[in-house]
Amino acid sequence: MTDTPLLKVRDISKFYGARIGCQNVSFDLWPGEVLAIVGESGSGKTTLLNCLATRLMPTSGAVEYRMRDGEMRELSRMSEAERRFLMRTDWGFVHQNPADGLRMAVSAGANVGERLMAVGDRHYGKIRETAGDWLRRVEISTDRIDDQPRAFSGGMRQRLQIARNLVTAPRLIFMDEPTGGLDVSVQARLLDLLRGLVQDLGLSAIIVTHDLAVARLLSHRMMVMKDGLVIEQGLTDRVLDDPREAYTQLLVSSILQV
């Protein structure tokens, strides 16, 4: 771990008119750290994620990111070209619904290869080879490389979406309910895969989830949101095993035990 945060978030607020999306959120994210944002629907966790990932413009506050050259840059002051470049090289965004993050009418290989071509790779053979490697890493058989994601199961699509995001070796991944809508067994496989990738690649990640088991398995640290505010945050196992706030205690006690 280096001694500067990768992402510095200061007093981020987002209002939809008079309604609060999220309010006064501040934290640092360090290289290699996985942060889970938990809370029920409407708690503002997705709004916060979108503000951080520059998919939404926050009403106030600042998000700074440490670029590959080490310079801290405030995201809102970057040009759109720079932001979009950042998003397809140094960042990833994994949507809950894979169809939002994939090109459904384009083959799996091209889905993975797109970012490479976007940064100027012009050798078909090499692009295809890299795409094949990534399909293997996300446990998709390489003989599916020319199939469209339309022909894939939900779990495969989600894994393809992850491969598509990771191919440029990003340093930060945003994930919005990455296991939502998947069968439990498929979820487990995906979680394990994510866990391994995050560890092997030293990725930083911000994961929005309502599933505390996902937070427990993947994250180092977590934030609990309610009504747009972060009401509790800290080490993941401490928040889950020794919750302080009433709402967190309610959340933790609401988990079904198998």
């Binding site: 800290g234 080490l235 196992d237 401490r238 095993d241 020794d242 302080r244």
Partner: peptide, 9 residues
């Protein structure tokens, strides 16, 4: 033990 480990605050 959990306090010492940081698991409990």
């Amino acid at each position: 033990l959990k306090m010492v480990y940081g698991n409990y605050a």
